[in-house]
Design a protein around this nucleic acid. Sequence first.
RNA 1: GGGAGUUUAGCUCAGCUGGGAGAGCGUCUGCCUUACAAGCAGGAUGUCACAGGUUCGAGCCCUGUAACUCCCACCA
Length: 880
Amino acid sequence: MQDKNNISKTYNPSEFEDRIYNNWVTKGYFHAEVDKTKKPFTIVIPPPNVTGQLHMGHALDETLQDILIRYKRMQGYNALWIPGTDHAGIATQIKVEAELREKEGITRYDLGREKFLERVWDWKKMYGDRIINQLKKIGSSCDWDRERFTMDEGCSKAVREVFVNLYNKGLIYQGSRIINWCPHCITALSDAEVEHQEQAGHFWHIKYPIKDGSGYVIIATTRPETLLGDTAVAVNPEDERYKDLVGKTLILPLVGREIPVIADEYVDKDFGTGCVKITPAHDPNDFEVGKRHNLEQIKVMNDDATINHYGGKYEGMDRYDARKAIVRDLEEQGLLVKVEDHSHNVGTCYRCGTTVEPIISKQWFVKMKPLAKPAIDAVKNGDTSFIPERFSKIYMNWMENVLDWCISRQLWWGHRIPAFYCDECGETTVSKEDITTCPKCGGKVHQDEDVLDTWFSSALWPFSTLGWPDKTKELDYFYPTSVLVTGYDIIFFWVSRMVFSAMEHTGKAPFKHVFIHGLVRDSQGRKMSKSLGNGIDPLEIIEQYGADALRFTLATGNAPGNDMRFYIERVEASRNFANKIWNASRFTLMNLDITENKLPDVSDLQLEDKWILSRYNDTVKAVTENIDKFELGVALSNLYDFIWDTFCDWYIELVKPRLFDKENATGKTAQYVLTYVLSNTMKLLHPFMPFITEEIWQHLPHEGESIMISRYPEYDENLSFKAEESAMELIMGAITAIRNRRAEMNVPPSKKAKTIIVTDKADVFEKGKIFFEKLASSSEAVVQSDKRGIDANAVNVVVPSAEIFLPLDELVDKEKELQRLQAEKKKLEGEIKRVEGKLNNQGFVSKAPQKVIDEEKAKGVKYREMLDKVLANIASMEQL
RNA sequence: GGGAGUUUAGCUCAGCUGGGAGAGCGUCUGCCUUACAAGCAGGAUGUCACAGGUUCGAGCCCUGUAACUCCCACCA
């Protein structure tokens, strides 16, 4: 947009988006200046995607966050991003491992810890760079610092501090428990990392012989291979059928081990056969039963879910091969009673989809009950609120029923657990600093090989990034943070853990608001995923339609927390909106010979100027109120309507005569008003569509360097012109009615007609005469107070406060006209009946608010007045 | 089994504390009107899932029903 007379006719974002972004960066506008006189606004943002590919969900996160940040920055807040986390360490490691295995035929164990971590680190750097470059494309004003993606010194310090503190308080403990084990990732998973899927399986009914030869017990199982680890069979103590069985000994098929029959409340008499095989090392319930009855725990699988030496002849087989072999062998021995189809819930790893194996294992756990209490209170008493509110219920539900959190992972990439075991005396020492000798006996120690769940360190993000545990200026000033923006799919993983961690370690809720958005789905409502191949690349959309169009699409048309479907048609509509803005600006610039941006004297303002300023002012109010309520979509649609309908379709058309007529004394005023309204509207829109607004604002007369560091408009009482607004509405209503009549009669716009306006509000319509000529195809508009000199055959249009006559006699079909008038009459009578029905209702008049009653009365008057005119017209028509 | 959500125009969805049903896309009619055909003007299309209730008044609040979606949950 260098030369204002040579601006391209269509909006072409590729011409300016990169240039503008680079300018923002070089001028340093992203850096929030730490000015303690201003209020801080801190936003915590979700982790960047480990794959290095910006996906649509991430684009949505970025857009919403950037809208809030830009808005607050323009309002003078000291805005700070807290970007990214080191989450996804596991996913990164798994990707690297897969690559090593496939391309180089080696494993992490072949490489050794040091070399392997270097490989992961290279990978993270590469993807870190890529994702940052991609984020620039959507205009994200986050001051990205790649190092913050990583497990930097500060973060490590915070993690150790937290671990040791929790350990010393007894809130972290080590223990053997049944955990979810992913045989593909070869690591433990927390409960939240397991996804449950309904799977079709089988129910195998198997005979376990009684040792004394008195018969069999029939049990049913969905996992026959766990039979190898059985150490008992349980029945319900109340079950009459099996009363005599309790205490007897069974022979475990295929294995030959002698196992007891025990009685335990856990068994449901009415499910299956009423007898349950107990495998304490491979099932959480059985584990509990086993503890109660002091049963041996026999773990029959290796880490990769192959059968171990306890499995005898099945050793080395994969769990599913072993299942087949065992079933076959049971069948051969006549111990398989029957096989039923049975669908059941199976846990799968949320990263790789492998069916998880419940396995007994020694792991580190966080005791959750004491931590959950303050986290529940924080939301209950409103220190942290969810938007929309309903997500607090989901959060509460989880918090109140939370189980202990398994935090150790059998991986190498991550924060290593700061626990040291003495090789001499076996003492476990947890320490903030690395130690080499046992504090108890002075023997050599070795550190725990495992690392922490990445969510453990991510949970500290709001304060660890600000320097905690040190008492830094930043922590003091920016913490607690203002808003966390994230999708509802991450509430359990991250949000809840940040809250309880913050409560425990800082005593404060980490953020004031949690702004939850939905998922972006494809046009058929499916989750976008790589395996379905239905993912839409945001970068391709940006390239084709521009970042502003994508941002508009993502920010509009859906309510907070609801999923949205991504339609390319919606992006096109957004692009069309950008094009509309582009052309309105082009029009403005082409008609500008002023060089400053100021509001003209009120006395110079014409009716339409006051009207647009008043409407603009209302828009400022609506937009700011809605953003403050996190109703970004509503705010944006306020702007859309104002820009397209009000500013472009009406105001620009209304002022054209003044702009084109160089003799017109109010032409300059129109230029000032156009400039003022347009540039301020660009400011209102800037958080949503940063590029196009910057480009336009730079070309309009302005003060300051960049729209992004200009002040956001505020509601101004002096710009409220309610009387002019109503006057313009009368005129506009009349214009619309005339257009409507002409369209009905198929009168081409080229056929002009004299327009006679009969009204008792002559002052209003007198001001609007020129608008009728320009916008309603009048050859000449005449305002008069009675019907003198009007052909009875003229086309008439009845509107509030006026009756309009168009002498288009030759086009009038008397019959049709009468029909139309009758229809009009019927409609008005209907309205009057409705209004009178209300006003005659004693309940309504006595109980409804006065404002509503007055409005109804005013409508009644208006309709009756219009009906009178219609009736008079019918009468005169019939006389012809 | 527990919890949450959804049901409004042909499609995708808004509709914020109850006060005459909206947008975009699509569709139909007429326009190349000197900012924009990625446009302008005008039109059509809804038992607001169903049944009750509260209220002067219900798309909105309450109760129940149905269908769909999602989350959580150790029934072998």
